[in-house]
Design a protein around this nucleic acid. Structure first.
Lengths: 279, 279
DNA sequence: GTGTAGTTTGAATCCTACG
DNA sequence: GCGTAGGATTCAAACTACA
């Protein structure tokens, strides 16, 4: 059970940042770049980013039983080619570097469609990679046509701002306790976000096409932040990063352009807090 | 047991390519780029490449102007190092694309130090990624200082020359038989190359610092080639790719600059063939 | 409530031959 | 090059229905 002080954290939706204190435990509605520009240097202890993957789907895909696969075709994932995607990546990664504290770390998740580009851009910007971490899915979507290997993984890049940074947070012993007392490796096993965890609207449609599993975010936060740290998620989505931070007594700032996602995040927090209070 | 015709394959070391037929089951001593330039277009059914990752080694061996860099190279900052590595990567990947048949596939293995750069460069060159595959090591080197996660993986990129290529070889059913009858996924579990498989010299020193496990190469070859296909390994090392190809009745061409590695490869083949003949 | 069988679904760069 | 018809293709987990 969390302390009462934590249970009563007041999570707010805002549209404009006025001063430093207003960003703690806030979900900011707005464009990721614009909002980050209004935040001062060296603000966050850790950044988790789940940017659009730029999937470039080719055709419709049907399962062997002729049902259609509900692919990611959201507008937020549409880019006009690699060049535009790279430009977008450079811009947000540059702002992220500026608002990250000197000894802070950044996590970026992606698939083979985008992660090589993101990783190289990060290296070129001076980010120093600490690990690549592989989320290995217990229940991925199969390759229905049998023309490739099952794509059962997503990749995370974990990095510091600069090669010289040595005093970043890595809770080595804490990680050991999550791995039968042995050193935690970079292959992580989690299921997809399904069941009661997956947010669905009144028509039972998933609210967000790419909601991440909470245990993944919990491990990230437990590994690389301390209690009371401030975590930024520039692509907040439906708030998984915030929930994981809140659950482990870290503070957060999330940025999300889609107000509907933000409102769902707020619902999630309300219900999570009520559950904690035994309501 | 392999057919006698295969067992008696005559594997030769050569220094110059004279005509097409001379590259079949040959190990060519020489610079990867120079040798590839002497091979004609659309020659290979599959390419496996394990390029050097070590930046320092890179700088020494492959500085684009062909000047050899002196031993300690602290003057080279990381950005400079990346630029040269990228240049080197573009050069060999371009030649690889040229000598790869239209419907051929290419595999490149790397770690987080280089694979993001290699992957992005491949995408920029028009290669179309089919899968990222993750070699997950059962016995990786621990992170001794406890400052990062155990780096227990290496990443492979599997790609075709162009987005339009659809008739590449993928032995779907064969792969199923290696995965309890179920679709093969992109997470592969193999131990490091150790024990009797690991080549060691008379002083018991490892012959090659990054010798890959044979089962890894066997899976790659069984997945993406047919019997009789011709496989290129531009960084042949101590010959694992050739041994895997030979074992499964594929032909190969390997290029290796270090003559000592080449001689070790020949020893490996001789001993492998003798074992097959029951000597 | 319990157990079992059937249904649904997930960040997907997912076909081929022929006219 | 394109459009279209034909035909081969899926795994694990959560959920639902029903006995």
């Amino acid at each position: 059970m969390l302390p009462t002080s934590v249970m009563n954290v007041d999570i707010k939706k805002i549209r404009v940042i006025e001063d430093e204190s207003t960003i703690i435990n806030k979900i900011i509605v707005g464009d990721c770049l614009e909002v980050m520009k209004s935040i001062k240097n060296d603000t966050f202890d850790m950044i988790f980013a789940d940017p659009p993957y730029n999937m470039q789907l080719q055709n419709e895909l049907y399962r062997p039983n002729n049902t259609k696969v509900d692919a990611v075709d959201d507008l937020w994932d549409q880019f006009d080619g690699f060049e535009h995607y790279d430009e977008f990546s450079k811009l947000w990664l540059q702002e992220a570097k500026r608002v990250l504290k000197k000894s802070g770390t950044i996590w970026v998740i992606g698939s083979y469609h985008n992660i090589f580009r993101v990783g190289k851009i990060m290296q070129d910007m001076g980010y120093w990679i600490l690990n690549d971490v592989h989320w290995i899915k217990s229940n991925p979507m199969p390759n229905f046509r049998g023309v490739r290997f099952t794509n059962a993984t997503e990749t995370l890049v974990w990095a510091v701002k600069d090669k010289k940074v040595k005093d970043y947070t890595f809770n080595y012993e804490e990680m050991k306790t999550h791995n039968q007392g042995k050193q935690m490796r970079n292959d992580w096993y989690f299921g997809l976000c399904t069941g009661s965890e997956r947010l669905r609207d009144e028509k039972n449609i998933k609210v967000h096409s790419t909601q991440k599993p909470l245990p993944l975010l919990e491990r990230i936060i437990l590994a690389s932040t301390k209690k009371g740290d401030l975590v930024l998620d520039p692509f907040g989505g439906t708030g998984t990063t915030g929930v994981a931070a809140f659950k482990h007594e870290r503070n957060f700032t999330m940025i999300e352009q889609d107000e509907s996602y933000v409102d769902w995040s707020l619902k999630r927090f309300k219900s999570f807090q009520e559950r904690l209070r035994g309501i």
